[in-house]
Computed example of a mutant assay.
Amino acid sequence: MTTIRKASQKDAKELFGLIKELAKYEGQLQYLKTDLNQMTELGFSNVKPPKFEAIVVENKGVLIGYVTYTWNYSIWKGSTYMAIDDVFVCKQFRGNNIGQKLMQYAKDLCASNNIELIKWEVESNNEKAIRFYKKLGAEVNKKSIVKWHLT
């Protein structure tokens, strides 16, 4: 039995563990600069608004997946949108529609707040993820992402 819900402070340690698991899976662990204390403070403390929020999926009391996101504003659209940072489901639970349910929860959360757009990035060579997102009805465009690291 799985439960999908918004994350709370009690989820911080397990959520951080899943974030590390994703970074390791992607071969990006060396780029993970946040830590549990920072993540807890900025996402689950008295910072208003929080710097990020999360949706988690729980199976038998253990977190097995998540979506992290922020709320951003589009100058061109003149409205707020959800910017998804990460989507992750533990390997042994993939293929059970959990990712689809997480994304539906995100969509429903937006709808309940009159938000009409969700944006996120996917690596251009991640064909499996692109197929998954297209199956959800998402539009995948070829716009390039530009990064400018200042330190």
Rank of each mutant, 00 (worst) to 15 (best):
E21G: 05
A54K: 03
L150E: 07
W148D: 07
D11I: 03
A129E: 06
N125C: 10
A138E: 00
G99C: 08
L18I: 04
A12S: 12
C90K: 09
M39W: 07
Y105Q: 01
L15F: 05
M39H: 06
A54Y: 02
K143E: 11
N97D: 10
I75V: 09
E58M: 11
T34C: 02
L29V: 05
L136T: 07
G99M: 06
T68M: 00
K20R: 15
V57Y: 00
D85Y: 06
K24H: 09
R5V: 12
W76G: 08
N59K: 14
K147C: 10
A129V: 09
T80G: 11
I115L: 14
V140L: 09
D108W: 01
G43E: 03
E14A: 11
T151H: 13
R5T: 13
T3Y: 03
E116I: 13
L18S: 00
D11L: 02
E58P: 07
K128E: 09
E41T: 12
V62W: 03
C110L: 05
E116W: 11
P50A: 15
K101S: 11
K135V: 04
E14P: 03
L18Y: 01
L150G: 01
F132T: 05
Y73S: 01
T40S: 07
E127L: 15
G65M: 00
A138P: 00
V47P: 00
A23I: 10
W71V: 10
E26C: 08
V47A: 01
I98E: 03
I118Q: 08
L136N: 07
Y133V: 06
L102S: 01
G137Q: 09
Y66T: 04
I64Q: 00
N141E: 11
I145Q: 11
E116M: 11
E116T: 15
F44S: 06
Q104R: 15
G95Q: 03
V57D: 00
K119Q: 14
K6N: 12
K135G: 13
K128I: 01
L136G: 07
Y25H: 12
S112V: 10
L18T: 00
K135P: 04
G65H: 00
E139C: 12
N113S: 14
Y73L: 09
K143P: 02
S8W: 00
S112E: 15
Q9K: 14
A23E: 11
